[in-house]
Design a protein around this nucleic acid. Structure first.
Lengths: 202, 202
DNA sequence: GTCTATAGCACGATAGAC
DNA sequence: GTCTATCGTGCTATAGAC
């Protein structure tokens, strides 16, 4: 950004590596139960070195969680998820599938995101954005009801919670070494949710 | 238990009240992020008073979580869940419905149980028992495949994880003041999961 | 960019009076 | 059965040398 040449953004890469190590530990032991000493040990540095790359523990949390949330929010603006591109139910299926994919590719970040309790301003803001995502998904299901793709008295928010609950539960048990291929797991989950959706009434 | 008369178990009631207040806070702020000072404040006593009723913070966790786990394990021995009482798929549906009911009636305990990370011996033991429950459910689905109630190449563990993930996600959003009646929420979830099950292949 | 050392604080737990 | 007071520990974060 300044007039200096050679903007190699070297510090940026290290901030990334610190966050990756931190979220690996957050995934296994929880955010609150993970100390910066443990993060530092995983990187073979001391705790103080971390503060060169991040402003503090909560800044690391924000770094990773914002990436996961950004990916999810991006799904809503990807063209297959947009009105007029397909039927509402087909758009919902796209959002669901992308949500599953993001859960797999950003496993730790999404898992930590889903377990935040709202204890700080940052956490409350994250939860707000997550709720907005769920509401956007419910809006699509509402269109599906209006278009006659779902039974008349379906409750879009309730069905969204069940679909997203199923999708989000992926991060609780899926790991990269899962016996079945990732694509098969995702397609099974999508088929499971979509047939559950079509059969539900309330 | 001793020879004294009048076994009023008064301390037992208080231990229950302490645990109830504690799990309410655990549900909202997380187990690690909740201090015994907060629990004491909710009860209008001081932190030291809690130690008369429980051996410590982890003893309170064990008290509530063991009750939730005991209820879930009990489902597996209730007669409608037993082999020979119905078809495997009907037995699985019973386990699923009871799991949802227990999630509602023991909301905080189940929510906390599901979020444990395995940081202590107690937590690891709890996770072990939870995994045994999931395996028992998967065994029923395995019978369902053998009986031809599910497609031949279905993966029982994968389908169990999706069914239970859906059921367990209930505690993330359901609250006693939900607009829809509890029975309707449960039946919607059961129908959602069962039709998802029957349509899934992998 | 990483280190040692430590400040500052919050927490779980205990002792002992009442 | 609950209190006040305190101990010991582990944590986030910072200061300053290298």
């Amino acid at each position: 950004m300044t007039s200096k040449r050679l903007e190699r953004a070297k510090g940026s890469y290290d901030a990334e590596a610190v966050a990756r190590a931190a979220f690996d530990l957050f995934l296994h032991h929880g955010y609150n139960a993970t100390s910066l000493d443990q993060v530092a040990a995983a990187l073979n540095v001391t705790k103080a070195a971390i503060y060169y790359h991040h402003a503090g523990k909560e800044a690391i949390l924000a770094y990773g969680v914002d990436r996961a949330l950004g990916s999810l929010e991006g799904v809503l603006t990807e063209s297959p998820a947009l009105p007029g591109q397909a039927t509402p139910l087909q758009r919902f299926e796209y959002v669901l599938r992308r949500t599953l994919e993001i859960g797999m590719s950003h496993l730790a970040e999404v898992a930590v995101l889903l377990r935040l309790n709202g204890n700080t301003d940052l956490e409350r803001d994250v939860i707000k954005r997550r709720r907005a995502f769920d509401r956007a998904a419910a809006d699509i299901l509402e269109e599906a009801v209006a278009a006659g793709e779902l039974p008349e008295h379906s409750d879009p928010m309730l069905l969204t919670r069940m679909s997203m609950g199923l999708a989000n539960s992926l991060v609780e048990w899926y790991r990269p070494d899962h016996p079945r291929p990732a694509s098969e797991v995702i397609e099974t989950a999508v088929r499971f949710a979509m047939s559950g959706l079509r059969r539900s009434v309330a």
